Amino acid sequence: MTAIDPLYDKKCTCPLCNTSFTTKKIRLRFIKMTNLDTDFFPTYADHNPLLYYINVCPDCGFSFHEKTSSSLSLNEKMLLIEKVCSRWIPRSFGSIRTVKDALITYKLAAYCALLRKERHIIIAGMYIRIAWLYRSQKKRKQEKRFMKLALKEYEASYMTGDFKGTKVTELQTMYLIGELFRRMGQINEATKYFSRVIEKQSKTTETNIIQLAKDGWHKIREVQQI
């Protein structure tokens, strides 16, 4: 009996240049999460799907995720061609990826998303994943840098409400802002957002988020009492 490979080739079409290419993804049956950190950073047993989240066109360099709109405006195309394609050296990220490879793909995708002026919540999701990958490498300085960028985008998303229509809820957004502030050492801001989350406890079914906010608030109190 032939063993099933955890990785498979997924066919993609570049929304920018229409090139067809394949990229690796991990079969769901092989994804086994062993831990979830307080900012939702997942740790996996063997195969890490975070490495394969971004698709990169080998021909033009346009980088995108599954939720990226396949329809690009003329202005978006012109800007991407100028800022990305003109500087791109053709190469493929369609094989097995290292953390270093994945970091490159996320940074490319974040740059493309910024050029396209995608939702803040989408850009925040890319930045926080970059921070997670740096954490997995124990590169604290780079982790903190991208955590700060993620925080800025999550705040903008909360203020504009552009998380609506995505899988990220308002409560999750508020909690993440509070948790990132806590990790950045900005205690007053962290407490403010944790309190906003806890105030919603009688009006929500997201009890796990309420508990996480309470845990974060207690961690702050413990540190303050030392």
Rank of each mutant, 00 (worst) to 15 (best):
Y158T: 04
I81T: 15
M1P: 03
K83P: 06
G61R: 08
K167V: 08
L212C: 07
H47G: 12
T105D: 03
I4E: 12
N75G: 14
Q186F: 08
V168P: 01
K214G: 09
L133W: 03
E199I: 05
C17Q: 06
K203W: 08
K83F: 05
D162S: 07
D101I: 01
K139Y: 08
P58S: 04
N208Y: 15
I121G: 09
L212N: 08
K117L: 14
D59M: 13
R97W: 00
C14E: 03
P90R: 00
T204F: 00
I187P: 07
G178I: 06
N55M: 15
F64E: 06
L74G: 08
G161Q: 03
Y53Q: 14
K25H: 12
L149C: 13
M126D: 05
M174S: 12
Y8I: 02
C112N: 10
D9H: 03
R182T: 04
G216T: 06
E76Q: 09
S70P: 07
R27Q: 10
S195N: 14
S157L: 11
K164T: 05
T13M: 01
Q186P: 03
F64W: 09
C85M: 11
R221Y: 09
P58K: 01
F146T: 04
K67I: 15
P6K: 05
F163V: 04
K24G: 07
R116G: 02
I220V: 04
K100D: 07
G185V: 02
I209R: 10
K24V: 04
N18Q: 14
I209V: 13
A131T: 07
I4N: 10
R97E: 02
F194K: 03
S136P: 06
A156Q: 10
Q172M: 14
K192I: 11
C85E: 15
P58N: 03
F41H: 15
K11V: 01
A109Q: 09
F41I: 09
K144D: 01
E222H: 11
S157T: 04
A102V: 02
R91L: 06
P15H: 05
K200I: 00
D101E: 04
N208Q: 15
T98Y: 02
R221G: 09
T173G: 01
C85H: 13
S95G: 13
S92T: 02
L171F: 00
P6H: 00
S202L: 11
R119K: 15
K167Q: 14
